[in-house]
Design a protein around this nucleic acid. Structure first.
Length: 333
DNA sequence: TTGTGTTTTATTGCCTCC
DNA sequence: GGAGGCAATAAAACACAA
């Protein structure tokens, strides 16, 4: 026994006849439907509403408590059918587990709905009304709470599952959209590179006329040129507010979005702006302009190698979204 | 009828609270 | 230290297919 606790003292095996009090009989009718049950439940505890049609077994304490008017019920056996022999057999065998009647269970359920905890007074009253031991009522409530908890966990699980499914659907949609936009960016990058190659030889003299002679640094090779184009794009995007860039660049409704190509990109990637100024022209101005987030003419952009922005490993030119992309890439379940 | 899975009733041991 | 709650579990009762 746990902690000296003694349970079911009346049901010890062997001749506990004195500890058991059988109220056998059979009362026909009464409380056979839920309406009666409701009325019984709502109308108060006593006298016992349960005058079940079947034979009943009660325990001594219940019997004593109920008196002759209360007819507690248990469902055990039918003496009318089985006769005295069965009765004796039942009477002398160790007490078996007996299920509560439907009416008892319904009454307990109603009570449970009202309050799933059982105060001592309520327990006694319920036991009285149902013709059960208080301990049985307590056990029933305990088991009922366990079942309720299990069901509640299942419900919670379903809610979480739905929430997860919803979030995952959102994530999948966003991921697809991101992939689509990445593909678009790559496509545009290729376009720009081709355009750059074409313009390298043809437009160079014109550009030289516009620029101060000392910064007419020739574009040496295509690889370097491509790098500059991309870097220029990165810087151009850097000049804009991050949030603005995020929502605006790929927004076809945006005023900067023309013909499927963001105008800021086109502007920035224009071949006339690919030339870097001399190192001496950068110095203080570049830091100031960057820190103030002021959009400067591209030809005063700093050397991009010195900036905090770096291309992601998988893409040498992604138009200035490396940081956010990293965040996105790390966003996974 | 029987084997098997599920539900219900009850026990046990541990824990917390007063 | 006792009362009561809870988790884990046993075991009886029940449902049901084969």
């Amino acid at each position: 026994m746990a902690g000296g606790r003694m349970y079911n003292q009346n049901s010890s095996s062997g001749g506990g006849t004195s500890s058991l009090s059988f109220l056998i009989q059979s009362q026909k009718g009464s409380c056979s439907n839920s309406q009666n049950l409701d009325a019984s439940f709502l109308s108060g505890p006593s006298p016992s509403p349960f005058l079940g049609p079947r034979s009943m077994v009660s325990f001594e304490d219940v019997h004593l408590a109920n008196g002759s008017n209360n007819r507690p019920f248990f469902r055990p056996f039918d003496r009318d059918e089985n006769g005295d022999e069965d009765f004796d057999e039942y009477f002398h065998q160790p007490e078996k587990k007996r299920r509560l009647t439907v009416d008892q269970v319904q009454f307990l359920e109603k009570s449970f709905e009202v309050e799933n905890k059982l105060e001592p007074e309520r327990k006694i009253q319920l036991a009285k009304d149902l013709g059960l031991q208080p301990r049985q009522v307590a056990i029933w409530f305990q088991n009922r709470r366990a079942r309720w908890k299990t069901k509640q966990l299942e419900k919670d699980y379903d809610v979480l599952q739905n929430s997860y499914n919803s979030l995952k659907a959102d994530y999948d949609n966003l991921f697809k959209e991101k992939e689509k936009l990445k593909a678009e960016v790559l496509k545009l990058t290729d376009k720009l590179q081709v355009k750059e190659k074409e313009s390298k030889n043809t437009e160079l003299p014109v550009v030289n006329k516009q620029e101060p002679p000392q910064i007419s640094e020739p574009v040496a090779d295509s690889a370097a040129s491509e790098g500059k184009v991309c870097k220029a794009s990165v810087v151009a995007c850097k000049q804009e507010d991050i949030s603005s860039a995020k929502s605006d660049i790929f927004d076809s409704d945006s005023p900067n979005y023309t013909d499927g190509v963001h105008s800021s990109l086109l502007e920035t990637c224009d071949s006339s702006y690919v030339f870097e100024p001399e190192q001496s022209d950068l110095s203080q101005d570049e830091d100031d302009s960057l820190s103030k987030n002021v959009l400067l003419p591209p030809y005063v952009f700093p050397k991009l190698e010195e900036t905090e922005y770096s291309d992601p490993p998988t893409n040498s030119c992604n138009f200035g979204f490396p940081i956010e992309d990293h965040a996105f890439w790390s966003w996974s379940f």
